[in-house]
């Protein structure tokens, strides 16, 4: 399973490296949202610093919809997934591989986006360990839930509208928890015992487990 997962992740990342969809489309999209968020709010000092974590995670959540959609579309287009089944690739491995590939892409996107947030909104960041750890688990959670839902909604013509409807309510605790723990990290109250970090860990573990168990049944059906 682990070997399959690594192979899948490598394959998907190679496809991404060649097609550069995340770099050329999803990342610019995330940046545009950062800019229009400022239009919708107010640029008066204090406002943007205060809401910066929330806007950051909202931008990530929206971008993740495109990433997970693509990750699954690679397999469903031209029925490439049937080939994987024929070669006997483990379904849990496929799931973990897809999650890893989406995770890597989103994490890199977050790194670039964070620079954008610091420049555009100007928050002061104190607790770097908390920032990194909560970003890590939040991204795992979003990727796991996202890949699973994207697979659930695949094959439908209404997928583009169905996926956000399914994914956003489910990942809303991640949005909330990641925002809150970043707010703690941005202020001086940062500590690694943050309850929000624990919630992010629970969420990511639960969704990784659910995916590992159910992904096979979704693929087979």
């Amino acid at each position: 399973m682990w070997r399959d997962a690594l192979l899948m992740a490598g394959k998907d990342l190679r496809i991404e490296f060649r097609s550069k969809v995340t770099l050329n489309q999803i990342l610019p999209f995330a940046f545009v949202t950062l800019i229009v968020f400022a239009f919708a709010l107010d640029t008066s000092p204090g406002t943007l610093q205060k809401v910066a974590p929330g806007l950051f995670w909202l931008a990530v959540l929206f971008s993740s919809i495109f990433s997970v959609d693509r990750a699954v579309a690679i397999e469903t287009n031209d029925n490439a997934g049937d080939g994987l089944a024929v070669y006997g690739v483990d379904s849990g491995g496929i799931f973990l591989g897809k999650v890893t590939s989406v995770f890597v892409q989103l994490f890199l996107l977050e790194a670039v986006l964070l620079v954008g947030v610091v420049i555009l909104y100007g928050p002061a960041i104190d607790g770097w360990p908390l920032v990194l750890l909560s970003a890590f688990f939040a991204t795992v959670g979003i990727s796991a839930a996202g890949v699973m839902y994207s697979q659930l909604a695949s094959g439908s013509r209404a997928k583009q509208t169905l996926l956000p409807l399914l994914l956003i309510p489910v990942t809303s605790p991640v949005l909330l928890a990641a925002t809150k723990s970043w707010q703690d990290a941005f202020s001086s109250t940062a500590s690694l015992g943050d309850p929000w970090l624990r919630l992010l860990i629970v969420f990511s573990v639960v969704y990784l487990a659910l995916g590992a168990v159910f992904y096979g049944s979704i693929l087979e059906a």
């Binding site: 839930a145 699973m148 839902y149 659930l152 399914l166 309510p169 489910v170 809303s172 605790p173 909330l176 928890a177 919630l199 629970v202 969420f203 639960v206 659910l210 159910f214 049944s217 979704i218």
Partner: peptide, 16 residues
């Protein structure tokens, strides 16, 4: 599966 995930999500959502 979607129904089960939604149900599992409820306590997490509630807690958050």
């Amino acid at each position: 599966i979607a129904g089960l995930i939604a149900f599992v999500d409820v306590p997490i959502v509630h807690q958050s």
